[in-house]
Computed example of a mutant assay.
Amino acid sequence: MACDVSIELERGRIRADMSGFLSLSDVAAFARDEQEGAREIIRHKGYFDLLVQTPGAKAQGQDVMGAFQQLVVRSPLKARRIAIVAASPLLRMQIRRVLPNDHIKAFETVVEADAWLDDMSLAPQPA
């Protein structure tokens, strides 16, 4: 598995490119990189969004999907919105089943995901 995490400071966005079949250690490495990027973006923007691209990725094991589910719930710094781009219909279905949440959406294309994240009218408002 490969996972590259980068930040787009001006957009308040973390981009993660993932491919292949993930392991629990891959999820842990992603979590570390994502939280490090989140700290930097939050210092400048006060929030962050997450865009995960999964070109060529297949449906993942239950242990990996469970680890991602726990990551969403337990991360100290939480993304305002999470857009996951998955070309595989099976992977999109798995994402929707395991991560059913209004601030997490699965998309077929990066264009759709970016448009959703860029639409500030859909962003959760601070309490």
Results as ranks from 00 to 15, higher is better:
A86D: 04
L122F: 01
A83Q: 11
S6A: 13
V27Q: 03
A86R: 02
A86C: 14
V64L: 09
R43K: 15
A67C: 01
Q70H: 09
H103L: 11
K58A: 15
D119I: 02
K58N: 14
I95W: 00
M1C: 08
L22Q: 14
Q35K: 08
P55M: 01
M1H: 10
A31Q: 10
R15I: 14
S19C: 05
Q53P: 05
Q94M: 05
E108D: 11
R96A: 10
L91K: 05
S75F: 00
A113W: 03
D118S: 11
S88A: 13
P89I: 07
E10L: 10
D4G: 11
V85P: 14
G46S: 04
V111C: 08
K58Q: 13
L9G: 09
E108G: 14
L9C: 09
V52H: 03
R81M: 15
V111D: 14
R32W: 01
E8F: 03
G20M: 06
R43T: 07
R13S: 11
V52R: 06
H103M: 09
L51H: 02
T109A: 04
R32I: 13
H44I: 02
D4Q: 12
A67W: 01
A79T: 01
S75Q: 13
A28S: 12
A31K: 03
E112M: 15
M93L: 15
D26Y: 00
A83H: 03
D102V: 10
Q53I: 11
R81N: 06
R97D: 09
A2W: 00
H103D: 15
A123I: 00
T54N: 13
E8D: 15
H44K: 11
V98R: 10
D102S: 14
S25R: 10
A127V: 12
M18E: 12
R74Q: 12
M120A: 11
P55Y: 01
M65F: 05
M1Q: 09
Q70Y: 00
L117G: 08
D4W: 02
D63H: 03
Y47V: 09
D17F: 01
D63V: 03
A28V: 09
V64C: 03
F68M: 05
P89D: 07
R32L: 12
H103R: 10
D119Y: 00
V72Y: 12
I82D: 00
E112C: 08
W116N: 05
I95Y: 04
I41G: 01
D49W: 00
H103G: 07
D114R: 10
Q35E: 11
F30Q: 06
D119N: 14
R32M: 09
I104L: 15
A57H: 02
R97M: 15
R39Q: 12
G37M: 03
P124M: 05
V85W: 06
P126C: 06
L9Q: 08
K78S: 13
R13Y: 02
E36M: 11
G46F: 03
A59S: 13
A113G: 07
L22S: 08
D114F: 01
R81T: 06
A87F: 02
P55A: 02
R32V: 14
L90P: 00
G12T: 01
L90E: 08
S88D: 07
K78L: 14
Q94N: 02
A106G: 13
D17E: 15
Q62H: 08
P55H: 00
F30E: 06
A127R: 12
V5L: 13
R97W: 07
S6C: 08
N101S: 15
L77Q: 09
A113I: 03
D102A: 14
